[in-house]
Amino acid sequence: MRTAAVLVLAAPLLIAAGPPPGASSCSGCHGAVVAGGIPPIAGRPATELTAAMRGFRDGSRKATLMDRLMKGFSDAEITAIAAFWANPS
């Protein structure tokens, strides 16, 4: 009983923190507004970001290289990345 309680308390410590897989790479390109440059993503609505990333992946949205990058992510991963960048911590 005592062991079980310790395990329950210890469990949250073992869960990794931080952005979902892939999300921290985005800010290498997507920062503040640059005229004629790469659009910012921080604070954009999650639905908009999800639609853009899925559109890049399936080719329905015009891209320079986001089409190539998004092929490396699943629907669930795209949703998680969109949720993170909609409200980055």
Partner: peptide, 29 residues
């Protein structure tokens, strides 16, 4: 290097706090 730095910083923070780093995904452009 920048993408690795951000993943590594998170892993180091996790390890110092006794957490296990999660499996990363990295991008290069």
């Amino acid at each position: 290097a920048n993408a690795q730095a951000k993943v590594c910083a998170q892993a180091v923070a996790d390890l110092l706090a006794g957490r296990t780093p999660g499996e990363p995904r990295l991008i290069n452009t």
